[in-house]
C-alpha cells in the first residue's frame, strides 16, 4: 500500500481550518497540534497522546473542498496507531457513534507504515472532502495509550 506521493499532490496543511480542529480524548500537554501543525509534527519529541484509553478521534475541517489522495501517519512502534478509520464530511461525531456510519476507508497500519510512509487511500471515496474525521481505534501493542508523532494529508484542491 505504501508508495511515493505523486508530484501533483500537495500537502493539505495549508487548507486546514485550524479554529475548527477538534480532538477527543487527547491528553492536555500532548494535543493534536503536536501531530498536525507544520514544524511541531516534524519534531518526534512532540506527539499527540490519548488520555482515558487508547482511542483518539480527530476532526479536521478544511477551508475549501479538497480531494484526498494519501495520508502519512508516524508513530512509535508500540503505541503507534493500528486500526485507523477515515470518515468524510461527518460533523458532530463522537466515540458513541463511530460505528453508526461506514468509514470511507479503513486502514490497518503495519509497524513499517508508522515510519512516515505514505498510504494511498481509495481516491474515489475522497473527492468532495469538506472535513475529515480520523478515528484511531487501537494501537500496535494493545496499550492503554496511543501516540501519534505526525499526521500529514496529501491531495489536491
Amino acid at each position: 500500500m505504501a508508495s511515493v506521493i505523486p508530484r501533483s499532490q500537495v500537502d493539505l496543511v495549508d487548507f486546514v481550518d485550524w479554529r475548527g480542529v477538534e480532538c477527543l480524548n487527547q491528553k492536555s500537554g500532548h494535543a493534536i497540534e503536536n501531530a498536525l501543525k507544520q514544524g511541531y509534527r516534524e519534531d518526534d519529541g512532540l506527539h499527540l497522546e490519548s488520555d482515558a484509553d487508547e482511542q483518539i478521534l480527530i476532526y479536521i475541517p478544511f477551508t475549501q473542498v479538497v480531494k484526498l489522495h494519501s495520508i502519512v501517519i508516524k508513530g512509535p512502534d508500540e503505541e503507534g496507531p493500528r486500526t485507523v478509520k477515515l470518515f468524510t464530511n461527518k460533523e458532530n461525531m463522537g466515540f458513541s457513534n463511530v460505528n453508526d456510519y461506514p468509514p470511507n476507508d479503513s486502514i490497518v497500519m503495519s509497524q513499517d507504515d508508522l515510519k512516515a510512509k505514505a498510504i494511498n487511500l481509495k481516491y474515489v471515496k475522497f473527492q468532495n472532502v469538506r472535513s475529515l474525521t480520523i478515528f484511531i481505534e487501537d494501537n500496535q501493542g494493545g496499550n492503554d495509550i496511543s501516540k501519534v508523532q505526525k499526521i500529514a494529508l496529501y491531495g489536491t484542491t
Binding site: L24, N25, Q26, D51, A52, D53, Q55, G94, F95
Partner: peptide
C-alpha cells in the same frame, strides 16, 4: 466519568 473524560 471515564466516558465524560474521553469526550473532554
Amino acid at each position: 466519568g471515564k466516558k465524560l473524560k474521553k469526550n473532554s
